[in-house]
């Protein structure tokens, strides 16, 4: 029994590793959901809590360093919360490391090459109207909070 559970966990971990390593080629159909309550509450107040596997560690560091002008808004946190959140995002970031010779680390998932490719020509006018903006993942991916993007 114990062994069975262990194997099962192993399979999940492997699935997680595989899907996040795809994050820069094709879109992953699943990423590990966020388990941390603080991250969910603080980074989910204005939008879906984007899963850390979508961006490399350097991206999350850059985002956390710029919360005073976060895409045109002040999203500052107290120091203690900021440190905890950054640690979680970095630990669970995308597997592929950012190489500085590629330029500055991206801070938008919606500008990543796979993202643009996956969504190009796929969005109906009605779906876009309902979502309002591409950052509103949950309007189209109903199970986005669970990390599931394969539901449409």
């Amino acid at each position: 029994m114990k062994k069975a559970i262990f194997t099962l966990t192993g399979a999940f971990v492997l699935a997680g590793m595989l899907s996040s390593s795809f994050a820069y080629a094709d879109g992953p159909d699943w990423v590990p959901p966020i388990r941390d309550k603080l991250v969910k509450a603080e980074c989910g107040a204005c939008h879906l809590t984007y899963q850390p596997a979508f961006l490399p560690a350097k991206s999350w560091k850059k985002i956390m360093a710029g919360l005073d002008d976060h895409f045109g808004e002040d999203a500052t946190l107290d120091k203690d919360a900021a440190q905890k959140i950054e640690a979680y995002l970095v630990t669970n970031s995308g597997r592929r490391k950012w190489n500085d010779s590629w330029g500055k680390p991206p801070i938008r998932i919606t500008k990543l090459r796979w993202f643009v490719k996956e969504h190009r020509g796929e969005i109906s006018r009605r779906a876009m109207k309902k979502a309002g903006t591409m950052t509103n993942c949950k309007a189209c991916h109903l199970a986005a909070e669970r990390g599931n993007y394969d539901d449409d």
Binding site: C46, H47, L48
Partner: peptide, 15 residues
Amino acid sequence: HGKSPQNTGKTRAGK
């Protein structure tokens, strides 16, 4: 927050 405090508002990311 929307024009009226009685109503539901919306963030720029649609929440």
